[in-house]
């Protein structure tokens, strides 16, 4: 039992002393997941709103596909990206396997269904009425999209935070396409997983604490906004 307590003490020491290795890992985690979330959001929030509002044939099938892919396991996403990016794969010439770029690609693909599905749902349930109001007050379709984004900005932000939370806490995809290389592609989750298999707990605990703080921060943000109605 001693090693647990010892692990905590060592973990706190690492954090308080701003251990460069620990902080490099944290910064890479934040960088990869933030970039992936922003990329996915910029492209797929407008698409989600558009699909949610638009009436078209096969909308039910599209909804089903989006909702189903929201729960694709991260290892599957990692596997697919690895197959595409490996030297023998169709995109092997890019030579980005086992780099942060590959990790960003994998996490972007991972959160796209999530951000698309959440936005789609939001637009479908709450956007239609806003679109109608914009129309009855003399607005065109661009006016109504602007109005929807402005009216639902808090909910959209909550969706973005939810997607980021999924990205930063996943381990499967970044482990596979990043390779957990020290100083290059090592992020919080892959380090924790590795440290555990090495039986070396202090750094795992230190990073675990940071990950908890990040998730806790995001979720309390989401909670406080979803309460404010």
């Amino acid at each position: 039992m001693d090693y647990i307590f010892q692990g905590f003490i060592e973990a706190l020491k690492l954090l308080i002393s701003f251990d460069p290795e620990v902080f490099k890992i944290i910064i890479l985690s934040l960088f990869v997941s933030t970039t992936a979330t922003i990329l996915a959001s910029l492209i797929f929030i407008p698409i989600g709103i558009y699909l949610g509002l638009k009436k078209f044939r096969g909308k039910r099938i599209i909804s089903r596909i989006i909702y189903t892919s929201m729960s694709v396991p991260s290892v599957i996403v990692g596997l697919v990206v690895a197959i595409l990016l490996s030297r023998r794969g169709p995109l092997g010439h890019l030579d980005i396997m086992y780099t942060p770029k590959a990790m960003i690609i994998a996490q972007t693909l991972l959160v796209i269904p999530l951000i698309l599905g959440l936005t789609y749902n939001l637009a479908k349930n709450r956007g239609t009425i806003i679109e109608k109001v914009a129309f009855t007050l003399g607005g065109n379709s661009i006016d109504s999209i602007i109005l929807i984004i402005r009216e639902l900005k808090v909910d959209i932000l909550v969706n973005v935070a939810t997607s980021f939370s999924r990205a930063i806490s996943e381990v499967g995809a970044v482990m596979i396409v990043g390779g957990n290389i020290k100083g290059h592609t090592r992020v919080i989750t892959t380090t924790i997983s590795m440290m555990n298999s090495m039986g070396d707990y202090p750094m795992a605990i230190a990073l675990g604490i940071i990950l908890l703080i990040i998730s806790f921060g995001i979720n309390s943000f989401i909670y406080s906004y979803s309460q404010e109605d």
């Binding site: 490996s86 086992y98 390779g179 957990n180 290389i181 020290k182 100083g183 290059h184 090495m198």
Partner: peptide, 18 residues
Amino acid sequence: YLSAGAGMGEVLRIASEK
């Protein structure tokens, strides 16, 4: 010098890719 923190199979794959 790349420290992978991974099992043998994974390290061989990384060496092969790189």
